[in-house]
Every structure is written in structure tokens, then in C-alpha cells.
Design a binder for these strands. Structure first.
Lengths: 187, 187
DNA sequence: ACGTGACTATGCAGGTTTGCATAGTTTTCG
DNA sequence: CGAAAACTATGCAAACCTGCATAGTCACGT
């Protein structure tokens, strides 16, 4: 195995487990059962213990969405919003509505203030980045922070509702509203 | 102590702990530390174990919001939306942005399908009830399911973002948009 | 008064989790 | 080649959780 690959696989596995089973369901034992690593090397890869694993997973999840958004910089605002929703649609589809957002999972179960603050930074970064993309996509600058916050909040909630209800309906309704509203506001 | 009071107190304590510490943070030990009951009587009050406690907590949390909504039946749609948001604003204010939604906490951490389905039923009931209130409040019936789903999803997300960022900004932005949009759509 | 059901008090068993120790193996690089 | 660094393998301790057992106490109704 290449250098550091075991660590990377564990971090990716932690993101998946956070999304599907929540923070407490993301134990080292579960992560290793998914990634196949060795129990004894956990504190070699993560001297900071579980918090270091979760921190790395939050960064990976945050960077994943951030990179996907950056790929549509310059496109019309409604396409930017559609891309953000497509990210979550793919996650729901790939897991048959079983997975949600890893950052949200940490937010609602965080026992340590550090983890909660880390999740908060990622949400804040997403809002800033999305607002900037919306402005570049033709949205009136004064409305961008509002629509960015609404989109992220509504999408996170819609993913959770779809998971719990085991139905695409909440997600579909929220998606069509957000895309239509953005089109109206940026035309 | 009156008959059944210990049980009721434990259920209420479970709602608070779910909102602040998530599903796994809501252990019998934690609940009893908050409500003051006795460890030995847990399986007297809850023969079904922890799942019975969480089920009861979900019902209480669901009924609480449902009753508050029912109290504004007949009022204009924008006031109905404002009331729903006020529910969560009070929770955030009372806990200095530390608590969130108990139903969402179960959704993202549920290990048992039964608990997830129970959370889903509550979300679905909220959507149905809110849509009906919006129609009675003057909203065009075709738009009610969409606006109900958007409001619940966006509010759940906004509460989570506000908690994580320790800032009222996401909640304020989402609230002002939803109220304004409802006013536009129902005038 | 008395019995029954509701409740308390204490404790235990089996499992899981984190964090670490100790020893052995593989990889990498000079 | 040879040594250092990276990694594996196994296991252990302290803490926690759930679920239950056992015994004792209180309250209420008849």
C-alpha cells in the first residue's frame, strides 16, 4: 500500500459512515471494517485520536462540495444552484436515500466544541463561496448572501427529510423551488 | 410524585438531550442525571428499552410543534410561517444557540429503521399540517405543498447552521426570505 | 388493616468504545 | 547492504452503555 493510503482510505470511510450512521456510529472499529485497515495502526495514523479522524473527514467533505462548486464558476446563477443540489441528489441516489450530509451529522451530535466549530466553519465557507458564485452568475449582489444561506439550509434540510421519509418528494419540491427562484432573481 | 410523572419527566428530558447532544448522547444515565429519576425504574417506565424512550420523545417533540401551529389556524399564511420560525427562534434563544431539532437528531443518527421511519412520519405530518394551514391562510392551494416543504427543510437547516456557526445570521436570512416569499405568494 | 400495583435502590453481565502498549514486519532511502 | 521510518498485529485497561435481576418501600383503594 502506498504511503499514507491507509490514512486516506480511513478518512474517506469516515465521511461515508458519518453520512450514513452519524458521529457515534463512526467508530474506529466501523471505519476499519469498511476500509480494511489494522486496528493497531489507528493511533499511528491519527495521534490525535478520534477527533483527528473526524476533523479530517469534515475537511474532506467540505472540500468535495467546494471543488464541485468551483467547477461551475462563471456559469449562470441558476446552474450554480442546480449543481449544488445535484451533489446531494447523487449522494441520495447512490445510497438509496440512506446517506445524508457528514457535516450535518457532526453538527447535531457534536460533544466537543471544537468539532462543532469546525462544522460551522465549513458551512460558513460554503455560504461565502456560493454567494460569490451567484454574483458572478448574474445575481444581484445584495441578494446573494440571502439566497446562498437559503439554498444551503434548505438543501441540508431536504436531504434529511428525504432520508427520514424515504421519499424523493421533499427534495424534489425544494430543488424545483430553489432553481426557479434563482432564475427569477437573476434574469 | 404523581402517577406517571417520572416517566413524563424522562421523556421531556430526552427531548432536551436529543436536541443538545444527539441520539447517542441521550443515554438513560444522562436523562436521569437531568430528571433525577432512579436507574432501577427505567425498565419499569420503559419496558421497550431505549427505543421506547426515543419514540416517546419523538412524539412529544412532534406534538409540541404541531400544537403551536394549530394555534394559528385561520391566520394569514405569512403569520403561519412566522409562527413556525418563531418556535425554533425561541429554542435557539433559550439555549444560546446550543440546541437543535430532536427529530433531526434522530434522523441523522438512527441505527434502527423503526426510529428513522418514526422521524419521517413526524416530518411528513408537519408538511401536511403546514400546507393545510397555508391554504387556509390564503395561499394558492397548488403552491402550498412546495412552500410547506421548503419552509420545514430550510428551517431545519437554518437551525443547524446557526448552531454550528454560533451565529444568528443564517437563521435571520432564511426567516426573512420565507416570510417575504409567503407574503408575496399569498397576497 | 391489608393487599396490590407503582416505584426506588443497588448491582451485575455482556458488549462496545477509546486510547495506548508492545512486538514484529515491510518499505524506503542513503 | 543496512538502518530508519512507516506500518501491522495482538491485546489490554478504563469507561461507558443497555438490559435485566433482586429486594425493598410507598401509596392507594377496598
Amino acid at each position: 500500500m502506498a504511503k499514507g493510503e491507509a490514512r486516506s482510505r480511513m478518512v474517506a470511510g469516515a465521511v461515508r459512515l458519518l453520512a450514513e450512521k452519524g458521529l457515534e456510529g463512526t467508530s474506529f472499529a466501523e471505519v476499519l471494517a469498511v476500509t480494511g485497515g489494522s486496528r493497531g495502526s489507528t493511533y499511528h495514523h491519527f495521534p490525535g485520536g478520534k477527533n483527528e479522524l473526524i476533523d479530517a473527514a469534515l475537511d474532506l467533505a467540505g472540500a468535495h462540495a467546494s471543488a464541485a462548486l468551483e467547477a461551475v464558476r462563471g456559469r449562470p446563477a441558476s446552474e450554480v444552484i442546480a449543481e449544488f443540489l445535484a451533489l446531494w441528489r447523487h449522494l441520495l441516489a447512490a445510497t438509496e436515500l440512506r446517506a445524508g450530509c457528514a457535516v450535518l451529522a457532526v453538527t447535531v451530535a457534536a460533544d466537543e466544541p471544537d468539532l462543532l466549530a469546525h462544522a460551522g466553519r465549513i458551512f460558513h465557507d460554503w455560504r461565502d463561496q456560493l454567494a460569490s458564485l451567484l454574483v458572478e452568475g448574474g445575481l444581484e449582489p445584495g441578494r446573494a448572501p440571502e439566497l446562498a444561506a437559503l439554498t444551503i439550509a434548505a438543501t441540508e434540510g431536504a436531504v434529511a427529510l428525504a432520508r427520514a421519509e424515504k421519499s424523493w418528494e421533499p427534495f424534489d419540491l425544494v430543488e424545483s423551488f430553489l432553481v426557479a427562484e434563482t432564475r427569477r432573481a437573476s434574469s
